[in-house]
């Protein structure tokens, strides 16, 4: 069957999306990675905030 000519690239954020879930295993891994990074970033931000105090 004919396939779509091109696929759009998109950024995977911690919020995820149906598009990410629809990518299956690959999308799920990327999304969870983004969630982890976001957690880390939040933690680091919080830690930095504490340091400033």
């Amino acid at each position: 069957m004919s396939k779509q000519p091109e696929k759009k690239e998109f950024k995977v954020t911690h919020e995820g999306s149906l598009g990410v879930l629809a990518l299956g295993a690959v999308g799920l891994k990327l999304w969870r990675q983004a969630v982890e990074e976001n957690k880390k970033a939040k933690k680091s931000k919080a830690d930095n905030g504490k340091g400033k105090k």
Binding site: L21, A22, L23, G24, A25, V26, G27, L28
Partner: peptide, 17 residues
């Protein structure tokens, strides 16, 4: 339901690849 579907799809795409 959405989570279930996403799980099945992720497992199947992983196996396909």
């Amino acid at each position: 339901v959405l989570a279930n579907a996403a799980s099945v799809h992720a497992a199947s795409t992983h196996l396909m690849e």
